[in-house]
Simulated assay, not measured.
Amino acid sequence: MPVESVEGEQTTFRPADSVVSADSSRPAERSRGEAVGLPWIEEADQVAPVDARELSKLFFERLRTLERGSPDHTYTRDTLIEMNLTLVHYVAGRYRNRGNGQLEDLVQVGTIGLIKAIDRFDVSRGCEFVSFAVPCILGEIKRHFRDTSWAVHVPRRLQELRGELVKAQERLASVLGREPTVKELAADLAVAEEEVLEGVVAANGYAAGSLDAPQDPGEAADTYRKGRSLADAMGAPDPAIEVFEHLHALAPLLAELDERERRIIEMRFGQEMTQAEIGTAMGLSQVHVSRLLSQTLARLRRGLRTRE
């Protein structure tokens, strides 16, 4: 095999029986290469792309004759992965400036695509492995972006529908000279109008804005508002929300009270009647009403604590 230069270093590819090394790990590698009937490659991940293409053909031919999971199969498969890592770096490098993850993350994701390509590649079909592997690697990286770039998690079906909607909107807008309607989008994509509406709503979860981001200066009416963030303009918490939460939690507990207890609670807190007025309406003394009210409120408190 020839000697190739990779990033200024010399990497030699020789038949296994010509390798002599003092490294105790290399005789095992040499014997594995001899057992499989393939050359031993000292540093498979440093193989030049031209040599990797030719060597891959040889390794794929041998791989399909080996039993899956055997040591020989593992050696051949692992060497194929290492030799073709340059494909992963090439594809991942095209997306390094997408701003969603480091290059190392994309290489890891792309390597999964490479492994899938190696396991699925059929050398008998006569096509080049590079032509088969690159779409697999690219698909895995695009899937990574699709699953991680959304600010809010939505089903994959809606993520894909969003992309189709964007393309359909641009295409129809150029033809119609205006923004397409939901009905027109549904007809163009051959889907129901409800699906289009669902996709439009789901698209709102693609990106999230920061509450600390300054307001748009173009929309500000004065200098004071221009320096304010969105959170500053949102107002104070609504106390009615807390009341609603309490009522929602109390609803099943109130349903467990008897008729008299529920009537006392309704007159006291719903109609804001005094205990004396409640007693007059129900034919009870004010002291009796006070006792019943205290007992009922204690039961409700215990029930709330138990549920919490």
Rank of each mutant, 00 (worst) to 15 (best):
E4N: 09
V6L: 11
E7D: 13
E9L: 13
Q10K: 13
T11K: 10
P15S: 10
D17K: 01
S18W: 02
S21W: 02
S21C: 10
A22V: 13
A22C: 07
S24I: 15
S25E: 11
A28Q: 09
R30W: 01
R30E: 07
S31R: 09
E34K: 02
A35R: 11
G37N: 07
P39A: 10
E42S: 09
E43H: 15
A44W: 02
D45G: 01
D45I: 06
D45W: 01
Q46G: 12
V47R: 09
P49L: 06
P49E: 03
D51V: 14
R53D: 13
S56F: 04
F59W: 11
F60M: 09
F60L: 07
E61I: 12
E61A: 15
E61T: 14
T65M: 11
L66W: 05
R68Q: 14
G69P: 02
S70Q: 03
S70Y: 02
P71I: 02
D72C: 08
T74G: 10
T86E: 13
V88A: 04
Y90C: 04
V91M: 03
R94D: 04
R94C: 05
R96T: 02
R98G: 15
D105Q: 08
V107S: 00
Q108G: 15
Q108K: 07
V109F: 01
I115T: 05
I118V: 06
D119H: 06
V123I: 15
V130I: 10
V130E: 12
V134P: 00
L138D: 14
G139Y: 01
H144G: 00
F145L: 06
D147Q: 11
D147E: 11
S149R: 12
S149Q: 04
A151C: 07
V152F: 07
V154F: 02
P155K: 01
V166S: 10
K167T: 14
Q169P: 04
T181P: 01
K183P: 01
D188W: 08
V191F: 00
E195T: 00
E198L: 03
E198C: 03
V200A: 06
V200D: 05
A202F: 01
Y206F: 12
Y206G: 03
Y206C: 04
D212E: 14
D212N: 12
A213C: 08
Q215Y: 05
E219G: 10
T223R: 12
T223L: 11
Y224E: 15
R225D: 04
R225M: 03
L230V: 10
M234D: 04
G235E: 05
G235T: 02
D238E: 01
P239G: 04
I241V: 14
I241C: 08
F244D: 15
F244V: 14
F244I: 12
E245F: 08
A249S: 14
L253A: 07
L254K: 09
L254I: 15
L257Q: 12
E259F: 10
E261V: 05
R262W: 09
R262P: 06
I265G: 11
M267W: 06
F269I: 03
G270I: 11
Q271F: 10
A276R: 15
G279F: 01
M282Y: 05
S285R: 03
S285L: 05
S285G: 13
Q286C: 07
V287T: 15
V287G: 09
V289F: 00
S290F: 04
R291D: 08
L293F: 02
Q295D: 14
T296E: 09
R299H: 08
R299S: 08
R302I: 13
R302W: 11
L304T: 11
T306R: 15
T306C: 13
R307Y: 13
